[in-house]
């Protein structure tokens, strides 16, 4: 297999996944054109692209911005709630034991089931959508961060105690930096969940946003448009996922090296 060997040896890192995606799209296009699947069930990628281009760009941007705003607000709220919670969970065993069942109940309740209730309770506007987004995104951050805080090696904690440091300094200078790799893994999971949360919220109650756009498109049986919205959501998710990684690389470069070192040792 000389092609595979060539790919392994000299191809840039992005090439194999790009080829895989292109191959899948080509297969899809061929299947759709051959008439194996009716176009109203699965439109060809070319039809989706055509439908997407038919929608004016400002209209797209309006929907994307509406969704992005909810995602970012919900994600920020999730981080703001999760970090103090994770610190408290790692610090107080009693609190950890009491709060975990509650967190699990919140996490295991289907977000789709709570969403309509929250909309009724919190009324129209951004608030219910932000709350729904935060609810689905906070759990991995709490679990990941508290795990990182608790996994700090005993000898580092003992060093801190032997230096007579306060708990605040122990957290700021030792535990939190140590937990950064865990925190960022959790943030990557959480940002993808936040997109899901925002779309679910838009399905329930919204008059703009990509989720709203997909729902109305399907309601009018404009399947290619719905697929276009779906593709846009994927791009949005990938971009946000990459952004979290970029923030880590720019501001906390050592948290990457640390996780690499830990993995290799």
């Amino acid at each position: 297999m000389p092609l595979f060997r060539l790919l392994r040896a000299s191809a840039p890192l992005w090439l194999p996944p790009a080829l895989a995606v292109a191959g899948l799209l080509a297969l899809w296009e061929v299947t759709a054109r051959a008439g194996l699947i009716p176009p109203f069930l699965l439109p060809a990628p070319s039809a989706v692209a055509a439908a997407a281009l038919a929608v004016p760009a400002p209209q797209w941007l309006g929907h994307v911005w509406a969704t992005l705003r909810i995602v970012l607000l919900g994600f920020a709220a999730a981080v703001a709630i999760s970090l103090p919670l994770a610190v408290a969970i790692s610090r107080f065993a009693l609190f950890r034991r009491s709060i975990y069942p509650i967190l699990l109940v919140i996490q295991s309740t289907p977000i789709v089931a709570i969403a309509p209730i929250l909309v009724v309770t919190l009324g129209a506007g951004d608030l219910p959508r932000v709350v729904i987004t935060a609810m689905i995104a906070f759990f991995p951050i709490v679990v990941g961060t508290s795990t990182g805080l608790l996994q700090c090696p005993d000898e580092l904690i003992e060093l801190s105690r032997s230096l007579g440091a306060t708990t605040g300094r122990e957290y700021r200078q030792i535990r939190l930096p140590y937990a950064l790799p865990h925190l960022f893994s959790a943030l990557r999971v959480a940002i993808t969940l936040a997109v899901i949360g925002a779309v679910v919220a838009e399905f329930v109650a919204a008059d703009e946003g990509v989720g709203y756009f997909i729902r109305t498109s399907t309601a009018f049986f404009r399947i290619p448009l719905a697929f276009a919205g779906l593709a846009l959501l994927s791009v949005l998710t990938l971009a946000l996922f990459g952004l979290v990684g970029l923030v880590q690389r720019l501001f906390f470069p050592h948290s990457l090296a640390a996780s690499d070192a830990r993995r290799s040792s």
Binding site: P153, E155, L156, E158, L159, Q173, I174, P177, Y178, L180, H254, S255, A257, A258, A261
Partner: peptide, 10 residues
């Protein structure tokens, strides 16, 4: 001085 070096990796 501890059994393990107890250095801060970052």
């Amino acid at each position: 001085v501890f059994q393990r070096p107890a250095l801060l990796p970052w």
